[in-house]
Simulated assay, not measured.
Amino acid sequence: MISSWKNTRFDNIAFTSGENFTHSFPDHFHEEYTIGVSVNGIQQFNLLNKEFIVAPHSIFLIKPGQMHAHHPIADLGWSFKSMYLSPDFVDHLLKGSEIKADSAFVPVVQDEELFNHYINIHENKESDVEDRITSFLYSVYQRSTDNSLQASVISSSEKLDEIKAYLADHITQKLNLDTIAGKFHIDKFQLIRQFKKHTGVTPNVYLTILRVECARRLMNQNHSLVETAFEAGFYDQSHFHHNFLYYTGVTPGSFVG
């Protein structure tokens, strides 16, 4: 069971909570910074080509665009809380500090004081959260920043960045690998191999994740489910429902409910 709530006072900060969750989240990414905590249970967290076992009261940190996955251990279920912060909001919060949002950091941190700080923000999410989130970000970055991790980040070529941008600009169109390969002067099968090597997924899966992220954004802006499915590039409501549930663990109706 997952519940979600938005604080519209500050850039539509999204908060989610999951209780006794056994759903596996496959490889996916978000357009926002994702900061979450594991409340109960144990999960396997995959990020930057590494596997982490996340114990209760751990904090996990994910930058925009970073491919990651979550899997419960032995189907025992786990409970978590997450919040999603836009890049613009994070830049605003860190402005004037020595902390850089693009610094490399340890993806999983176990710190009881930071965990309690996070829970306080989540439990008081309807109030003015800007100062408390700023304080938390300062603390968690100072606790987790690790420049030695920079080499672990998968870098992509300029051409692959252009292909990803092309997919983002053509989200409502059906994927045509021959067209993309011709446009960027690359063999179609080389395109698939290189794209998966650098992103962890095929171009088709990447495009689906883009559509799911677009749908989340549109629903946060109060678009109807019918409008959202169409504008995010899903063929019909069934296609939208299936993929949204697969990648987020909730149905579109539950997300807006």
Rank of each mutant, 00 (worst) to 15 (best):
86 S>F: 03
87 P>V: 05
90 V>W: 00
92 H>W: 11
94 L>M: 09
95 K>A: 13
96 G>M: 07
96 G>Q: 08
97 S>P: 06
98 E>M: 11
98 E>I: 10
98 E>N: 14
100 K>A: 13
100 K>Q: 14
102 D>Y: 09
103 S>I: 04
103 S>K: 05
103 S>F: 05
106 V>L: 10
106 V>T: 12
108 V>M: 02
109 V>F: 00
110 Q>P: 01
111 D>G: 05
113 E>W: 08
115 F>E: 02
115 F>C: 02
117 H>F: 11
122 H>C: 12
122 H>A: 12
123 E>N: 12
124 N>F: 04
125 K>H: 09
125 K>E: 05
128 D>H: 14
128 D>V: 09
128 D>Q: 13
129 V>M: 07
134 T>D: 06
136 F>P: 00
137 L>C: 05
138 Y>H: 15
140 V>D: 01
141 Y>I: 02
141 Y>P: 02
142 Q>Y: 08
143 R>N: 09
143 R>F: 00
144 S>Q: 05
144 S>A: 15
147 N>L: 11
147 N>E: 12
148 S>R: 11
149 L>K: 07
152 S>G: 05
152 S>A: 11
152 S>K: 11
153 V>W: 10
153 V>E: 13
154 I>S: 11
154 I>H: 09
158 E>L: 12
159 K>G: 04
163 I>W: 01
167 L>V: 06
170 H>P: 03
172 T>D: 10
173 Q>W: 09
173 Q>G: 10
175 L>Q: 04
176 N>W: 06
176 N>A: 11
177 L>V: 14
179 T>S: 10
179 T>N: 12
180 I>C: 04
180 I>L: 07
182 G>E: 12
182 G>M: 08
183 K>P: 00
184 F>I: 09
185 H>G: 05
186 I>G: 03
188 K>V: 12
188 K>R: 15
189 F>C: 08
190 Q>P: 05
193 R>A: 15
194 Q>A: 14
194 Q>L: 15
194 Q>M: 13
195 F>S: 03
196 K>A: 10
197 K>L: 14
199 T>G: 03
202 T>P: 01
202 T>K: 09
203 P>W: 02
208 T>P: 00
209 I>H: 02
209 I>C: 04
212 V>L: 04
212 V>T: 05
212 V>R: 03
212 V>F: 01
214 C>V: 04
216 R>P: 02
216 R>T: 07
216 R>D: 00
217 R>D: 10
218 L>M: 08
